[in-house]
Computed example of a mutant assay.
Amino acid sequence: MTSASADLLIDRPAVTDGAALWRLARDSKTLDLNSSYSYLLWCRDFAGTSAVARGADGEPVGFVTGYVRPDRPHTLLVWQVAVDGSQRGRGIAGALLDGLTARLAAEQGVTDVETTITPGNTASERLFTSFAERHGAGLSREVLFPEELFPDGPHDPEVLYRIGPLTHVPAH
C-alpha cells in the first residue's frame, strides 16, 4: 500500500459492497454504469480478482474490478477503477492496482494487465501509464472496439492498453 493511502484497508469486495461499488461508478461520471445487479454479481463471482479500498468506517471509497482472461490465464483484465471524489489525488487507485496485481501474481501467476480506456480519459491514461512504469513493464495501445461496434448510441472507441510483463511486483 502506498503511503498516500496508509490509512486505508485494501481487501476483496464482499457481496454487501455491491451497492457501494455501483454508487462509486455512478458518481464517477466517467465510467459506463452497469446495472446494480451486475455489481452484486461481480462482488460474488469475481471478488478474487477485484479489490476495494475501505475508509476508517469500513465503507468502500474506491474499487478495481477485474478478471483473469480465460484464454490468457496470466493476464488480468481490469474492468473498472473508481475512487470517491472526496478521496481522489491520494494515490488510492494506484494502491488498489498495485495491491491487486501483487495478490494475483502470488496466487495465480499473473504477469500482464490489460484494460480499455476511451480517448481523452486523462486520469485513466495517467494511472495505467504510471502503473506500467512502476512495474518496469512495456505498454502498447490499440483500438479494441471501434465506436461503430456499440449498438446503443454514440460511444467513444475503447483503446486496449496491454501492460507487461510486470517485472517489479511489490510483495503483497
Rank of each mutant, 00 (worst) to 15 (best):
T16M: 02
R69W: 01
L21S: 06
G66T: 09
V83K: 00
Q87R: 15
A47E: 06
E107Y: 00
L76W: 03
R72P: 05
A93F: 03
A51M: 05
I117M: 05
I92E: 04
G91Y: 05
V81R: 02
F63V: 13
V61T: 05
D84I: 09
G85P: 07
Q87A: 10
V78M: 09
T116V: 14
E107H: 05
E133D: 14
A6C: 12
A56K: 08
R88A: 05
L40G: 10
W22P: 01
L24K: 08
E107G: 00
D84W: 07
T30I: 15
D98G: 06
S50V: 03
S130W: 05
L77F: 15
Y39L: 10
L96V: 13
D7H: 05
S124K: 05
D27L: 11
T116G: 08
R72Y: 12
S86W: 08
L9D: 08
L100H: 00
D27P: 08
G48K: 02
V81C: 10
S35N: 12
R126E: 10
L8D: 07
G120M: 12
R12S: 13
G62M: 10
R88Q: 14
D71I: 10
D112P: 10
C43I: 10
G89H: 05
G91F: 12
W42V: 09
P73V: 11
A51D: 04
G85Y: 01
L24N: 07
G85D: 15
V68M: 12
F63I: 09
L21K: 03
G58R: 00
L21R: 04
L104F: 00
A51W: 00
G99L: 07
